[in-house]
Design a protein around this nucleic acid. Structure first.
Lengths: 219, 219
DNA sequence: ACCTGAACACCGTTCAAGT
DNA sequence: ACCTGAACACCGTTCAAGT
């Protein structure tokens, strides 16, 4: 019944799995301990605090993304490269919707590191690639900023639209409920608002972004 | 020394002030109680749980934005209206950097409500305004989506760049530290990366967005 | 070297009791 | 009607002790 000696990796992987299923709020040293068939206190052998565990989980995800999806291929055009990275990040967000917001809430290693591309290694590789595609330094930095802003906005929106939140759902208390039926315009447009063209919206937004970056580069 | 009877409003305002100063993680019923010269348990007379308190604080901020900044003036052009709303939201984000991420992490009232514009009343008013400026229904919804995505991405980036996070700073544990000096490209571009043209970047991004929306509308 | 048990200081929340 | 005190079940974390 007892697996081989507990390793740090196991603890971190378990934490990710736990958060994916129940959310960070529910992650408890004691609960993760019992999930691993161990007393909570044993975890401190591998992790210095709950906070460090969570931030290690975040790092794990980002490093995984780097190793699996990007080192492998180097597309011919920078446009294809953007598509590549964007879709890899999107897949990460969609397969770990409860982890994704943590990429933002964790403080970055450097102030100019912009989530969700939040490791120095990552950004270094990204910028170096752009330079390799012939971007000027200024243009590469601009593209990096525009790209992160796009990813963050769109993916976070998508993830929260999945009805997932950092904290579990809060009851409405005894506040006056807002009644959507009262709001004429919203009611009228509800059909269009609720349309969920998430993949399409993302692709269109991305195409748009690429177009903007191209335009700037040609000035 | 004892103020007039505790009101729900006081509790919520205090919670906002407390979060602004110390972050949500530090908000504790007991601590907020002593900040209000009252036992923690007294708060439950006005608020049904800690969660409900936090979500009331978020709602308070959004409602305040609505009342103060937007009902007042109705600019002549939709472009000016966008600027209006965007800057109002930006001011909110910058004056409550520790609250702002909560606008995202709290579940929205309806699935198609996109943070940070996250109240039905708000969105109704926003969409109605666009229709008033002559937008078609489809175009108004598209503009709403593009606008929220922009606001969310840019403001969240700005707020996290302030070094603020939902959770207090996590130590790095005994993981291998990433050494920025090792990363050549990042090192080379560090100057450009660290430039903080936040107001300008935001304005440019907004101009860009407006331009995109205009273009679509003319097709 | 790794895990456990008991303990400490702190939570959110309930409930009977005070005024 | 509003607040308090004591209590309960749960946390993160420390530390001495077991193997």
């Amino acid at each position: 019944m007892n697996r081989t000696r507990l390793r740090r990796k196991d603890v971190i992987q378990s934490a990710i799995a736990y958060i994916d299923e129940y959310g960070v709020q529910s992650l408890t040293m004691r609960r993760l301990g019992t999930a691993l068939d161990v007393e909570a206190m044993a975890l401190y052998r591998h992790v210095s605090s709950r906070e460090e565990l969570v931030s290690a989980a975040v790092r794990e995800l980002i490093d995984g993304l780097f190793d699996d999806e990007l080192m492998q291929t180097q597309p011919k055009s920078w446009e294809a490269y953007f598509q590549h990275v964007a879709n890899a990040m999107r897949n990460l967000a969609l397969s770990h919707p409860r982890m994704f917001p943590l990429l933002i809430s964790q403080p970055p290693e450097a102030p100019w590191l912009r989530p969700p591309l939040r490791s120095v290694r990552w950004v270094d590789y990204f910028l170096a690639s752009l330079l390799g595609y012939g971007f000027s330094e200024t243009h590469a930095v601009k593209a990096y900023k525009a790209f992160t802003s796009f990813l963050l906005g769109d993916l976070l929106l998508q993830v929260t639209a999945m009805g997932i939140d950092i904290a579990p759902v809060a009851g409405d208390g005894d506040e006056p409920e807002e009644d959507p039926a009262e709001y004429a315009t919203v009611k009228r447009l509800e059909g269009k608002l609720a349309e969920d063209p998430s993949q399409r919206e993302f692709s269109d937004g991305l195409d748009d972004l690429i177009e903007r970056i191209r335009t700037v580069s040609e000035l």
